[in-house]
Amino acid sequence: MKPENMPKADFITSILLMAFGIWVLVHSIQMPRFENLEANPFSVPGIVPGLLGVVIFLLSLVVFLRSLKQKGYRLGINAAVIANASKDASMQRMLVTILVCSFYAMGLIGRTNYYLATFLFVLAFLLVFQYRQSQKQQALGKLIALSVLQAVLTAGAVGAVFRYLFLVELP
């Protein structure tokens, strides 16, 4: 992130963190105190997370006040900024990476056969990131063939090593 944008980022994250600290504190206070079991009042479940919630809130408050001083509240978010950000190549690569990986880990794994899920993920990842519009038909064929080969090898090798060598039940 560019240094000039850091106060803005700090402004938003500190608000989220302060809210999180308060949420932790409120939840901790609401936890049972086992008075009916004559539990020691210092052993109640909410005491440690409650204190941590207070500390997180206070530290985030300092970040918040500092961001106010640096005029971080001037977010300057408008349609043009959002449009520029969405066109940014590195931003697109980051989002695609998160999406493809998350879909494999939380969408495919456990619902599809492990070997098939891994094959599809590796193939999709390779094709998405290696495909270029300008690529010639011949090069594209080679790219697909090599990607399929790598996907088959990765799925087969990783699955077999964990299943048969390390005796892990595949998800």
Partner: peptide, 19 residues
């Protein structure tokens, strides 16, 4: 190339977390 390496790394991250 990182495009070839990273999916393999992520496959290992997934199975490593699960194992």
């Amino acid at each position: 190339p990182r495009e070839k390496l990273m999916p393999v790394v992520f496959v290992l991250c997934v199975i490593g977390s699960y194992a």
